[in-house]
């Protein structure tokens, strides 16, 4: 009896988690006039919303921009994060603790403080409407540095000393000798960084106003509040589906990694 209630609750919850996605996908395939009364399936299916949406906004370009920006940032965060993390974990230098606490401090600093001045910096550097504005401020990620530091600390010093005796440079030690043993951390940092950059909207909205450089979530947001949709709901929903799909497909393949990485972001 108790089991049955648990199953019913779980199933009802699961439906309420899936239904909005289902509705959105169905609505994007429904002729404009019928969307208002759509509950499950439309009377007839149309792809007009998609063809019309593709002709209204450069969504393909935005998809590529998002992939480019997120990939470069992910790559950069892994490289730079592991370098700094390694320095903090396995080398000795003056001010090491100072840098460590600086990182902790920066992590707790609310972004509301830096939002306006960082925008002004971007303006003064002439980076408005440039990929650099989307990429450079995100190349260092404090949380990634801490994760790398932690996993480097668990690596025995002997491994590093042996590599040094063999004449390896520190860079080679990090990327060739130590990287294979911290793969879970790399995966976690990679997924987290990729996802947060992929989903970032506020910063692109501020620094990029050129559609050729816009990221996907940004373009979809502006399309939904702006005028080019001609007040047609179907095309807006179609663009939202395009935004949701890539990450949902990636999720369906790598669920385990997504869940593990996100969970580790919570457990600091």
């Amino acid at each position: 009896m108790k089991k049955a209630i648990i199953y019913i609750v779980l199933i009802v919850m699961a439906i309420s988690f899936l239904y909005p996605f289902f509705w959105m996908i169905m609505a994007s395939l429904t002729p404009e006039k019928q969307i208002g009364s759509l509950t499950f399936f439309p009377d007839s299916i149309t792809f007009d919303n998609y063809t019309s949406m593709f002709s209204k906004i450069p969504i393909g370009r935005a998809l590529l921009n998002s992939m480019f920006v997120s990939s470069v940032i992910t790559f950069g965060v892994i490289m730079l994060g592991s370098m700094v993390g390694y320095a903090l974990a396995k080398t000795k230098f003056n001010g090491r603790n100072f840098i460590f606490y600086l990182i902790i401090f920066t992590m707790t600093l609310p972004f509301q403080i830096t939002l306006i001045p960082n925008y002004i910096t971007i303006v003064k550097l002439g980076w408005v409407d440039q990929y650099t504005a989307l990429i450079i401020p995100f190349l260092i990620n404090n949380f990634a540095i801490l994760l790398f530091r932690q996993s480097f600390m668990s690596i025995p010093q002997a491994l590093i000393d042996a590599a040094r005796i063999d004449g390896c440079s520190e860079i080679r030690i990090i990327f060739q000798v130590l990287f294979p043993s911290i793969i879970p951390t790399i995966v976690t940092v990679g997924i987290l960084t990729f996802m947060t950059t992929w989903n970032e909207v506020l910063w692109p909205l501020i620094v990029v106003r050129d559609e050729q450089v816009m990221t996907l979530p940004q373009l979809v947001t502006l399309f939904s509040v702006g005028g080019r949709a001609d007040a047609q709901l179907g095309v807006k929903l179609a663009s939202a589906v395009i935004l949701a799909l890539p990450i949902m497909i990636a999720y369906s393949f790598f669920q385990k990694y997504f869940i593990q990485s996100m969970a580790s972001s919570g457990i600091k």
Partner: peptide, 21 residues
């Protein structure tokens, strides 16, 4: 996995969807 799905999807998608619901 089902409960986790909205976590990974962009907040923009969630917002556009719920605005209509």
């Amino acid at each position: 996995s089902v409960f986790f799905l909205p976590v990974i999807v962009s907040g923009v998608v969630v917002t556009i969807m719920w605005q209509q619901l």
